[in-house]
Amino acid sequence: MRGSVRSILTGLAALFALFLALRGLVWVGGAVDQPIAYLLMTVLYLGTVGLCLLVTSGALPEAGPDADEDVGEMLTTAQHGPARLPQWVLGIALAMALSMPNVIALSVAPASRTAPFGTWYVGAIGLLMTIVMVRRRPWTAWIGVLLLALSTMLWIGVLPALSLGLIGSAVWVLAAQLLVMGMDRAARDTSRLAQLQRTASAWRAAQRGRQRERRVQVQRALAVAGPILSRAIERSGELSEQERVEARIAEGQLRDELRGGRLLDDGVRAELDAARRRGATVIVLDEGGLDDLDEAQLGAIRALVAGAVHDAHSDRLFIRASTHPQIAVTVVGRSARGGALSDEDTVDLWREIARP
């Protein structure tokens, strides 16, 4: 569909250029003193229009300081729109804008310079510069309009030039520039909207994944804590000392599953359980620092965490997944000073597990 629209627009521009050229060949109401030069310039003009319409070897815009604008241009450039004209075609177009008004004016009789066949170059160069503008060379297009205006005013005067199509040619070029700017803005907005939609979709997918993971963690924790909780409810809290220990361990396991899911595997759970059974208080906290790691990397980190807990003899253990760019997990152990836990406990373990 895009290719067919481009072909239709290219065909319309070519037909319009051919119409202007044929209109210039109708020598009615005046004389042409140099018909060969006149005809040669007409053929060269049609060839220049063909180059501007068909040559597609221009380079795409490169990313620069105005990255957003470059992205907008690229979205409507080349395969998605008109490509930039190469420099050599621009030189030919400017040479045509400079030479054609002068050659046509010299080719016709002085009395015929305001006749339709003597001023057809005004619309012709306007069309050529409009094509140049659409092909993303705005400075070249406006320089061509300026050259056309100076040459036309020089040969037929300011007011006749303005009344015989110079204003219309400038309006065509301006309309083409506004159209291209509108296309780029719309493409840029569409790109940003698509990016926002992709980001929102990724966020929703991540949230669904976390919700599923959280449900699995809760189910696993309830499977462990469910029996002791049921006994506590049945006996109205009247539990034996062993059952109280099991209840505290079950509570810790439940907290681990809810607050440190990505830090846990069977090996880590076993070591945490062993630490609690020997009387240590264990706190596990995952603040999201491991979300960007794959399973192999997580497995290596979990093995190191399990080893650190196994070797620890602290009264309190704090295991935290770090958001530091180099540290994945921090394991801190504190022991009671003087036999009682306080805020001034001695730090007897500090281990930082590096991010893979």
Rank of each mutant, 00 (worst) to 15 (best):
334 R>T: 11
226 G>F: 06
69 E>N: 04
229 L>S: 08
46 L>W: 01
349 L>D: 02
353 I>H: 07
92 I>N: 13
310 H>L: 00
186 A>H: 13
296 A>G: 08
106 L>M: 14
162 L>P: 00
303 A>Y: 05
44 L>G: 10
21 A>F: 15
209 G>T: 13
298 L>M: 01
273 D>V: 11
111 A>K: 10
67 A>M: 09
67 A>C: 04
327 I>G: 06
356 P>K: 05
289 G>L: 02
24 G>W: 11
286 D>E: 05
240 S>K: 08
64 G>I: 02
63 A>S: 11
341 L>R: 09
135 R>H: 15
287 E>H: 05
95 A>C: 13
170 A>G: 12
187 A>F: 00
151 S>M: 10
245 V>T: 07
281 T>Q: 06
154 L>K: 01
284 V>S: 03
329 V>Y: 06
152 T>Y: 05
290 L>S: 02
345 D>A: 08
318 F>A: 12
305 V>W: 00
344 E>R: 15
346 T>G: 09
324 H>R: 07
119 T>G: 07
208 R>E: 15
242 Q>W: 01
215 R>C: 03
274 A>C: 02
282 V>R: 01
239 L>N: 03
290 L>P: 00
88 W>A: 10
354 A>C: 11
286 D>C: 04
350 W>P: 01
265 D>H: 07
293 L>I: 02
147 L>R: 00
356 P>G: 06
159 L>T: 10
43 V>P: 11
274 A>D: 04
37 A>V: 03
278 R>A: 12
